[in-house]
Amino acid sequence: MSLQNKTVQRYRLFFPKETLRESSGRTGIQITRIFRLFNGKPMKVEELEAFEKAINEKMAENPNFSRLNYVMEEAAALLTNEELGKIADYMERRVTNKKFARTYIRPLFQDASIA
């Protein structure tokens, strides 16, 4: 998956219920352009940066996220493959249960709608 697709997918993960108008307001990118980018049009560097900035701002709202990142780097260096697998399983379970508790599970990418 290209860097652009990854970024858009991450963005939709952090803001799953956001309308195109809201995405436009958050990133400063025009609404029609947002629609095109969500549908795979190639991105300019400044647009990629705008999405990354929005994601980073959202992540900064949760101080434990940077802690988690730091611990994950240490874990990757120190723990065995088996131990890492257990941690990944644990995290996957927490995420899956959280997804079940959502009002509905919305597939990424496929349902961008103009507000």
Partner: peptide, 10 residues
């Protein structure tokens, strides 16, 4: 209700 529905679908 919604959790039950999501799990059944999954």
């Amino acid at each position: 209700e919604n959790v039950c529905f999501n799990i059944l679908q999954a």
